[in-house]
């Protein structure tokens, strides 16, 4: 029974901070969608079926702008290309012999944050663990969207601005301890950050979209890591 599995409970607990971090971000999404003329029910439906931040923000803005469907799908896809890598990494960390159906189910929950927590676990991750991990963030994402869509009044600007940093701060909390313990990890992070900075600020390169920038920076940094710092225990 899934709900009694200790792995599930452990996952639930690990998912609490992610769920709390999702609520303000989803709130902003609900607000954006409804103020652009999308019904609150559809805003919640988007969160329940997409469960992603950057992709659904961009997609919804394009829906509101009346952009053709093909372009909406393409833009959203490019933003989501990074999930290919995350899914690949998790596929190799999953307890062996996890069934196809279970794999297909947990795939739905691979967000940046859920991926990060699962990938940084010491042990192999089980189906139950990931189900537990994605449970609260999933409902937090939907709840935040509903609140933003229904309350539909802007939080005080200062509060809203301050909340914007929450998920990034969590990323920092996830990356720094590993970088402290391993020079290889630190080097990989430094390469990734340098490349993504180039894609943000360097002339010409700045034209590359955020979706491509993330995937190129990640690929290059991991390649460098695998070439220069191959791991012993594999």
């Amino acid at each position: 029974m899934l709900f009694r599995d200790p792995d599930f409970k452990y996952g639930l607990k690990k998912g609490i901070p992610i769920a709390l971090g999702y609520i303000p971000v989803a709130f902003t999404f609900g607000l954006l969608a409804v103020s652009g003329g999308i019904p609150p029910s559809i805003a919640v439906l988007i969160s329940l079926t997409n469960l992603t931040s950057a992709g659904q923000f961009a997609g919804t803005k394009l829906i509101i702008a009346g952009v053709p469907l093909f372009e909406i799908a393409l833009t959203t896809f490019v933003i989501n290309i990074r999930y290919l890598l995350m899914s690949f990494a998790l596929s190799q960390k999953l307890v062996p012999n996890t069934s196809l159906l279970k794999r297909a189910l947990i795939s739905f929950g691979i967000t940046d944050e859920i991926f990060a927590l699962a990938a940084l676990e010491k042990e192999d991750t089980s189906f139950s663990f990931i189900m537990g991990l994605l449970c609260l963030p999933y409902w937090g994402w939907a709840l935040g969207t509903a609140l933003g869509a229904v309350i539909c009044s802007v939080l005080p600007e200062l509060v809203q601005n301050a909340m914007g940093i929450a998920l990034y701060a969590m990323f920092i909390a996830l990356v720094v301890p590993g970088s402290k313990k391993s020079r290889a990890v630190l080097a990989v992070v430094a390469i990734a950050v340098t490349i993504s900075s180039l894609f943000t600020w360097a002339p010409w390169l700045e034209q590359v979209s955020a979706g491509w920038s993330t995937i190129i920076a990640t690929l290059a940094a991991c390649l460098a890591g695998a070439i220069f710092f191959p791991r012993e225990e594999v």
Binding site: L85, A89, A116, V175, V188, A192, S196, L223, R231
Partner: peptide
């Protein structure tokens, strides 16, 4: 090689997504 590559994915992806965003 591939296992090393994948080990670094969370660190690289989070780093790239966090800074400078």
């Amino acid at each position: 090689f591939i296992r090393s590559f994948l080990y670094y994915v969370p660190y690289a992806a989070l780093g790239a997504m966090t800074f400078p965003a």
